[in-house]
C-alpha cells in the first residue's frame, strides 16, 4: 500500500441527467405541477391567492409535526401518538385557561406537555427497548383516553383572544401568509439545515442505515432517538397551540386521525419507512401536493370521507412505488 495511487478516484460521480430526473424529489416536483394544472382546470377558484392562503391553515399544523416525524422515521422509529398528544396538550391548555391563566402560560404548558409525552414515548422505546410502533399505539390510546375521560362530552371554549388571534392570524395585516404557515416554512428551513448540513443530521442518517455500525462508530444511538421523540412531542405541542387557537375550543376528538395524514406526508415525501433515506425538500413538496390536492377536491365539493380514501391510496402507492422501481431497476 504505497503512497502512489494507481487508480484515479473522482471526487464526485460524473453528472448523469437520468439519475437526476429519477430522484424522488424530481418526481414530486412533476406531481406538484400536475396537481396545480388539474386543480386550475377543474375549479376557477383554485388560483386565488386568498383561497390558497386559507388552504394552508388546513395542513400547516400537521406539516410542522411531519418535520420531526421525518427525523424519527429516518432513525427507524415512529410516533403514532402525535394526534392524541395534541388532545392532551389542548386539554391542559383549556383547563389552565378556565382557571384564568394568560396566553404565555398556555403556550408554555402546551409545549411542555407535548415534550413530556414525547419523552415518555422515548423512554419506553429506548430504555426498555420496546418497538416504537407498539409503544405509540398504546400511548395513542392512553392520551386520547385521558382527554375523553376528563372532558366527557363537553368542550372547553374559553380561550384568551391573544391565543385565538395568533392561531387564526396572518404575519402582517394585509399579507396573506398565515402565522402557522410562516412557522412551518421557517421550521422546514431549520430542519433541512440540521438534517443535511450538521453533525447530528449525518448521525441521524447513519443510525437509520445501520444502527449497529452507528453504535460501533461512536454514535449514541438510543440517546439520539430519545431526543427525537422529545422533539416530535414538542412539535405536537406547538401544533396543539396553533390548532387550539385557530378553532378556539378543545373537544375530545380534536385532531382525530391526524397521525395517518402526517405519516402519509412523510412517506410520500420519499422518507423510507425502512429508515436511512429522505430529504426535507421531499417532505415539503409532499406537504404541498397533499395540501393542494385536498384543497382542490374540497373546492369541487368532494366530501371528507372520500378524501380519506384518497389519502389511504396515496400512502400505499408512495410506499409501493420505490419498492417496485427498485425491483424493476434490479432486473437487468
Amino acid at each position: 500500500m504505497s503512497d502512489t495511487q494507481r487508480y484515479h478516484v473522482l471526487d464526485r460521480a460524473p453528472f448523469n441527467l437520468a439519475s437526476y430526473l429519477l430522484r424522488w424529489e424530481s418526481i414530486l416536483v412533476m406531481l406538484l405541477v400536475a396537481v396545480i394544472i388539474i386543480n386550475t382546470a377543474i375549479s376557477p377558484y383554485f388560483l386565488d391567492i386568498y383561497n390558497l392562503s386559507d388552504a394552508t391553515f388546513n395542513f400547516s399544523e400537521k406539516a410542522i409535526i411531519a418535520l420531526a416525524m421525518a427525523l424519527l422515521i429516518i432513525t427507524r422509529e415512529i410516533d403514532l401518538s402525535v394526534a392524541a398528544n395534541i388532545a392532551v396538550c389542548s386539554l391542559v391548555m383549556g383547563l389552565l385557561s378556565q382557571m384564568g391563566y394568560g396566553t404565555p402560560i398556555l403556550v408554555m404548558a402546551g409545549l411542555a406537555v407535548g415534550a413530556t409525552a414525547g419523552a415518555a414515548n422515548g423512554a419506553l422505546v429506548t430504555k426498555f427497548r420496546l418497538p416504537s410502533i407498539v409503544v405509540t399505539i398504546g400511548t395513542m390510546s392512553l392520551f386520547r383516553g385521558i382527554a375523553q375521560v376528563v372532558l366527557g362530552d363537553q368542550a372547553l371554549t374559553k380561550y384568551p383572544s391573544a391565543l385565538t388571534s395568533f392561531g387564526q392570524g396572518y404575519i402582517w395585516p394585509g399579507v396573506p401568509i398565515p402565522n402557522s404557515f410562516a412557522l412551518f416554512l421557517i421550521l422546514a428551513c431549520m430542519f433541512g439545515f440540521v438534517l443535511h448540513r450538521t453533525v447530528i443530521g449525518r448521525q441521524i442518517f447513519a443510525i437509520g442505515h445501520n444502527p449497529t455500525a452507528a453504535r460501533f462508530s461512536g454514535i449514541k444511538v438510543e440517546k439520539t432517538r430519545f431526543w427525537l421523540f422529545v422533539l416530535t412531542g414538542l412539535m405536537a405541542g406547538l401544533a396543539a397551540v396553533l390548532l387550539t387557537g385557530r378553532i378556539g375550543s378543545t373537544r375530545p376528538n380534536i385532531a382525530l386521525g391526524w397521525e395517518l395524514e402526517i405519516v402519509t406526508m412523510v412517506i410520500l415525501g420519499g422518507i423510507s419507512i425502512a429508515g436511512g433515506t429522505g430529504t426535507i425538500l421531499g417532505l415539503v413538496l409532499s406537504v404541498f401536493i397533499l395540501g393542494l390536492t385536498i384543497f382542490g377536491l374540497s373546492l369541487v365539493n368532494i366530501p371528507g370521507i372520500e378524501i380519506a380514501i384518497l389519502i389511504g391510496l396515496l400512502l400505499i402507492i408512495s410506499i409501493a412505488i420505490p419498492i417496485m422501481t427498485a425491483k424493476w431497476r434490479g432486473r437487468t
Binding site: D3, D11, A13
Partner: peptide
Amino acid sequence: FGARLSVKASSWEQ
C-alpha cells in the same frame, strides 16, 4: 486516507 489505503473506486461518492 482513501489514497493511503489504495481504495479502488470510481468516485469518493461511490
